[in-house]
Amino acid sequence: MGFLPSKSGPRVRKLKSVQGIEATLIFYVPPPDLQSVLQDCMDVLGADRRCCVARELTKIHEQFCRSTLGEAVRRFHGEATVGEITLLIEGAGPSSQDSDVPAEVLEMELQQRIAAGEPLSQAVKAASRELGVGRKRAYQAALRLAKASRPAGES
């Protein structure tokens, strides 16, 4: 992900935009910003999300602090940190709410949006947000609907 914005407001917006990603999030953090970055990460992503604060990677004095975001906030509180900091944060797990939404409900929501003239990508994004399901699942459902609605013999 690279560097997060230096100010808290834009940083929180960026973190909210990536909070559902299931892959590990990797950020470069300027040492003076470590405490505020960890605090914003904990506030947005949750205190129980696992993380690793890595300092001076590939150098003779490399160090790793593996913990949760909540523990990292406490650990680095008031500590002057120096060196290159890389923050790795565990990806989001599959949403339990996602699996609770029946396929029929998702498909009906998508059908209504597409019938109302929304482009497929917008319908997927809106249905995903509205129902709290993963975009990948919503997109796969939309593709199934599009395939089912084609006349026989068309590809």
Rank of each mutant, 00 (worst) to 15 (best):
R137I: 07
P10M: 06
G91F: 03
R113T: 01
G78S: 08
V82L: 07
L145T: 12
F64H: 14
P30S: 14
I60Y: 00
A80L: 02
E84L: 06
G132C: 02
K125L: 04
V29N: 08
T58C: 09
V124G: 03
G70C: 05
A152Q: 14
H77I: 00
M42V: 04
A146M: 14
A141E: 01
A92W: 05
R150I: 00
V37L: 04
D100F: 13
S149T: 12
R50E: 15
A146C: 09
K14E: 05
L110K: 02
V37A: 03
Y28Q: 03
E79L: 15
K147R: 15
A23C: 02
D33V: 01
V37F: 04
V101L: 08
E79P: 06
I85H: 03
C51W: 10
S155K: 14
A80G: 00
A141R: 12
I85E: 00
L88F: 12
G78R: 07
A47L: 09
R74E: 15
L57G: 09
G153F: 13
Q112S: 05
Q19I: 09
Y139N: 13
E90S: 12
K59P: 06
R50N: 13
L38P: 13
K125H: 03
G20M: 12
V105P: 00
L25M: 06
A142N: 11
A126Y: 10
E109A: 15
G46Q: 10
Q97H: 01
C41F: 00
D43Q: 13
K7N: 12
L25N: 07
A47Y: 09
L4R: 09
F27N: 03
P32T: 07
L25D: 06
R137W: 12
D40R: 00
E62K: 02
F3P: 00
A47Q: 11
D43M: 08
G117L: 05
K14W: 06
V105M: 13
A123Q: 01
R75E: 04
E71S: 07
I114H: 08
C41P: 05
S99Q: 12
A92Q: 09
A126W: 09
R113H: 10
D98T: 10
